[in-house]
Design a binder for these strands. Structure first.
Lengths: 116, 116
DNA sequence: TAATATATATAGAAAAACTAAATATATATT
DNA sequence: AATATATATTTAGTTTTTCTATATATATTA
């Protein structure tokens, strides 16, 4: 029973966002900074990629958001993972594991040089 | 110096095709079977995805192809990796390593529950 | 006050990947 | 012999993903 549809980078960003939110409520900009900092610049998700993922997660009821005023007029939208999102996260983690293992297998496969 | 443009799934198929061709000349259908068999059905690349990748690799001179007659009228196109393709493969492998490590770091990061 | 950091949002384009089908040969099964 | 299945390449058309680039605005630091 193969992995669902194979949107891998998207699947990855979605998974990583849910994984971070699974620890703590966070707002968009904070998530993008965490990606950048934790990965030492190797995993950078530009705003134009991150926000649409957050909106899609919200549309699917995996996460919810709450506006919080910080400063006089400034507003932050904190995202919170819902039970449905935790289930989704488990699925994504297990798919990711399968795919990475498959990639490792293909990379390390020894295919006979002679056999046709 | 982050990873180039982040076409990850595509980068992955491209990388895996080059990795297999680095061992032995193969034809398209054979590559798709190897993916399926080695990965135990977990990494399936449909024809509509695989052939465009092969054509793009050929357009970029990473690989070349040679038509071989098998059976009376049947023709197979064997693909062969070129030096340029081997260099490309090294780059993709190193990018892949960086990204997977970044993903692992983000997945296992402990972010403080209290700090703002 | 100028520059930089914080923060959300979105239009538009580019790239990646899939579905589905067309086309055809070869082999195995009934 | 007929039918089904496996082998094999190709491409049209669409969907999904991702990025670039920008707009908008507030807060902080030099």
């Amino acid at each position: 029973m193969a992995i669902e549809r194979n949107n891998f980078k998207m699947g990855t960003v979605e998974m990583l966002v849910l994984s971070l939110l699974n620890q703590k409520d966070l707002y968009g900009y904070e998530i993008s900074l965490l990606f950048k900092n934790i990965s030492e610049e190797n995993f950078v998700v530009p705003e134009g990629s991150l926000y649409p993922v957050l909106y899609k997660l919200e549309d699917n009821h995996y996460i919810t958001s709450k506006e919080v005023r910080t400063g006089k007029r400034r507003i932050r939208k904190y995202y919170h993972i819902e039970d449905k999102g935790k289930i989704r996260l488990e699925i994504l983690l297990s798919d990711y594991k399968l795919i990475s293992e498959a990639i490792e297998k293909i990379l390390s496969a020894e295919i006979s040089k002679t056999e046709d």
